[in-house]
Design a protein around this nucleic acid. Sequence first.
DNA 1: TTCTCATATGATAACGATAACATGTTACCA
DNA 2: TGGTAACATGTTATCGTTATCATATGAGAA
Lengths: 338, 338
Amino acid sequence: MKAAGNPKMADVAKLAGVSLATVGRVIHNNGYVSAENRRRVEAAVSRLGYVPNTLAQGLKSGVQMVGHILQFNPNMLFAQISRAVDEACTQHGYRVLNFTKYGLPGEDQRIVTEFIGRRVSGVLITSIGQGLDPGLIKRLERARIPVVWIERAPEGSDCVLLDDRAGTYSAVSSMIQAGHWNIAYIGREPAQMVEKRRLQGYRDALRDNGLPLERGLEKLTTDYQPVSGRKAMAQLWESPQRPTGVFGAADTLICGAMQYLYQAEVKIPTDLSLAGYDNTVSEILSPPVNSVGIHAAEMGQKAVELLLRRREEPNRQPEAVWVGTELVDRGTVVRPKA
Amino acid sequence: MKAAGNPKMADVAKLAGVSLATVGRVIHNNGYVSAENRRRVEAAVSRLGYVPNTLAQGLKSGVQMVGHILQFNPNMLFAQISRAVDEACTQHGYRVLNFTKYGLPGEDQRIVTEFIGRRVSGVLITSIGQGLDPGLIKRLERARIPVVWIERAPEGSDCVLLDDRAGTYSAVSSMIQAGHWNIAYIGREPAQMVEKRRLQGYRDALRDNGLPLERGLEKLTTDYQPVSGRKAMAQLWESPQRPTGVFGAADTLICGAMQYLYQAEVKIPTDLSLAGYDNTVSEILSPPVNSVGIHAAEMGQKAVELLLRRREEPNRQPEAVWVGTELVDRGTVVRPKA
DNA sequence: TTCTCATATGATAACGATAACATGTTACCA
DNA sequence: TGGTAACATGTTATCGTTATCATATGAGAA
């Protein structure tokens, strides 16, 4: 028995008493092989537990592989996108190389070098947008590796985006339909497109229904942390212009808002109607709260398709694919008290 | 300019007017190279955007790589373990190959084949335990690939486990210290070791403090879904033996419990003291609830260390490394009403 | 009987990077 | 002046797999 080292094709060939070529034919099931030799090779493979060396395979015949950079952001949403990407790639015969971006120094460089070094056919970037060093994108370009952005993207790139405007619009509209006319918005300040779209959806819904825009009802935060939602909710509730409905542009903001409301003994939805966005944790809150659901799986799927399309036609105009949302009703939007 | 295909060492050598060996010396910064040639090679590398082909490198000189299978379970906890594994491996000069186990058919086979095919130096398995086909473990063994289990593990394996008994014990004790003597337990039925340990911690805490074990206070669920916690809480609250404190063996169970309590207008902690386990979502609930925090980063770190230790001494006895917990107090355990 | 074609198998040159080995230069000390 | 050591560069076999090419046999057609 060999001391160490995994069995290679040559070992299989020797044990089966045939040449390398014959082993290859059996493994890839092509060319002509006699029944007898096929049997012997298969026996040898299973006796030795032979598994082809992926590195050598890839070197010789070029594996099809897709790289995926995912912003560290541990919630259901990104797990779902990641899953969809995995499945779509596997389905199209590509392997996926996943890397999480934690925000450590030098990490981007390392990941991109890894991708280029591994000669991936394409790269997906989820929820990063501005955050990536532009020099790295240049490097990918020079290596002719197409990139598709998911959820956040720089201008003029191939990307799969969420129709946030419509999502927010639907949630706010549902409140208006229920009879609310004093609806507040808690959301991150609109520095990036995603946030602009969400705020826009709120404003459009009010305007389309003939309601005035009140600056005092738009509470802009610097982040999506619960504590920010909590502060914003406190300000809203303690203002003279107390709203009857509140929309939070992320479920985490709604969490914070509900912590304030619990303390203040405000009953939901009796005293206040609520709706969140992204549908990540809204189901586990007390009470479970309405939220705008995101078709994460569809985003992943579409992104892979776009990447493959781009590979076939490298010179097309960049394309933005939009994915819709779906309002999940859990009964936290009701007719306001008179 | 080349039509397609990435530049290789030979291209760099040609452009710099030197041999392959000299290029190699510059890239790996070893051996003797004249200042002039070093400059030329570096210029050529950056002009061509040359990045070594990882596959070829690995084939020739054997990359150090660790495989990681992670149970699909999108919460903070596993994201943190994953992160710690990534960092620890990188630190020790290993690359990580991450795969998520979604539970699709044939997926285990694929992942293990991938690992063996890539000749990884070791495999980490997070939160799977029984769930993996034993035949696959056999395959890894035959290929002499050491395995370290994280959080859940079969008997007699190298593993990093959480001291759940102590964790539960500390949470329940804190209630007893506060003056509770009627404390309920909501948790998954103890089919696996993890669940046994958690239940044991509860029982030990009661017994060590001279409190009786009441079967009616132990609500066992079939899973960790919020809805299960909700049902269990309902039964507890509506029973004659209504507890003054409830411990939930997972934060998600506590979520469900709180949904019932919200509906029943039970005030926390005034009417009931609460504590959860795993500290994943307890912070975002209303109110934020006490929970047993898990040192996820430490688990990942320790697992990698154990894997490397095992590589050096393949014939040692299997070892279980235990990681502690930390009770996070958010004020939801108070003295019960008289 | 000779030619073709399907069947069957083996030798061997890649893929791209690496490291052992070979082959030179200088320079400096004995 | 010869010898040794540090400096400098190039040649080439090798990693394990794949695919092309060459070769050989038997069966059926011309």
